[in-house]
Computed example of a mutant assay.
Amino acid sequence: MKTLTEEILAFNKARGWTEGNRDARNLAISVSLEASELLEHFQWQSGEQAVANNRESIMEEAADIYIYLLQLADVAGFDLDEAALAKIRKNALKYPLPAGEHQ
């Protein structure tokens, strides 16, 4: 993921997009806006229909969200992979398996 983040940062730098708007607040807003764009593809149809009809657009919106999340993690100074793994472990404690079931 570090290589991907570096590639995103280089892409932005080459276009002069590193100044002004690349802060945690603006990146968080961008994540939310892109997530809303993703949701538009699912409006008024089942999930299966949405994917069948809009797979490419859904993939692109998901990628936009991912790109903004990686930039947010970079600006905020955390590793997104590590944060996700820590959250999974936290959720495992919060929502343990029913007795007798194993992972």
Score class of each variant (00 low, 15 high):
Lys94Leu: 12
Ala62Gly: 01
Ile88Asn: 05
Gly77Asn: 08
Asn91Trp: 06
Asp81Leu: 15
Leu70Val: 11
Glu56Met: 09
Lys87Ala: 11
Glu82Phe: 10
Asp64Pro: 00
Leu69Arg: 02
Ala63Lys: 06
Ala63Ile: 09
Ala76Asp: 08
Leu70Ile: 10
Asp64Tyr: 02
Leu85Arg: 15
Ala76Glu: 12
Leu72Val: 09
Asn53Tyr: 06
Ala84Leu: 13
Gly77Ser: 10
Ile65Arg: 00
Ala62Thr: 04
Asp81Pro: 02
Lys94Asp: 01
Glu56Trp: 04
Glu61Ser: 00
Lys87Asp: 03
Asp79Arg: 15
Ala63Arg: 07
Phe78His: 12
Ile65Ser: 02
Leu80Ala: 14
Ala76Pro: 00
Ala63Asn: 03
Ile58Val: 06
Arg55Met: 09
Arg89Phe: 06
Ile58Gln: 00
Ala52Ile: 10
Pro96Glu: 04
Ile58Glu: 01
Val75Gly: 08
Leu80Ile: 15
Glu56Thr: 11
Ala73Arg: 12
Ile65Asn: 00
Glu61Pro: 01
Gln71Val: 05
Arg55Asp: 03
Tyr68Thr: 05
Ile88Lys: 15
Arg89Gly: 07
Asp81Asn: 14
Lys94His: 05
Leu93Ala: 03
Ala92Arg: 15
Glu61Phe: 00
Ala83Ser: 13
Asp74Lys: 13
Asn53Pro: 01
Ala52Tyr: 08
Met59Cys: 08
Glu56Ser: 08
Leu93Arg: 09
Lys87Val: 08
Ile58Ala: 02
Ala92Trp: 00
Tyr68Glu: 03
Tyr68Trp: 04
Ala52Thr: 11
Tyr95Ser: 02
Glu61Ala: 01
Asp81Glu: 14
Asp64Ser: 03
Asp74Ile: 10
Leu70Tyr: 09
Ala86Gly: 13
Met59Lys: 05
Leu70Asp: 10
Ser57Val: 01
Ala62Val: 07
Glu60Cys: 02
Ala62Ile: 10
Ala86Trp: 08
Ala83Val: 11
Ile65Gln: 01
Asn53Gln: 13
Asp79Lys: 15
Phe78Gln: 13
Arg55Lys: 12
Ile88Met: 11
Lys87Met: 08
Ile58Tyr: 00
Tyr68Ala: 15
Pro96Arg: 06
Met59Arg: 08
Ile67Met: 10
Lys90Val: 06
Gly77Lys: 13
Ala52Ser: 14
Leu72Ala: 09
Ile65Leu: 00
Ala84Pro: 01
Asp64Ala: 06
Glu56Gln: 13
Asp74Arg: 13
Asn54Leu: 09
Leu69Phe: 05
Glu61Ile: 04
Arg55His: 06
Ile67Pro: 00
Glu60Ser: 04
Leu70Thr: 07
Asn91Gln: 07
Ala52Gly: 11
Ala76Phe: 02
Leu80Tyr: 08
Ile65His: 01
Ile88Ser: 03
Leu80Glu: 11
Glu56Cys: 05
Gln71Ala: 13
Ala52Met: 11
Ala86Gln: 14
Ala62His: 01
Ala84Glu: 07
Asp74Ser: 14
Ala84Ser: 10
Asp74Cys: 12
Tyr95Asp: 04
Met59Leu: 12
Tyr68Gly: 02
Pro96Lys: 07
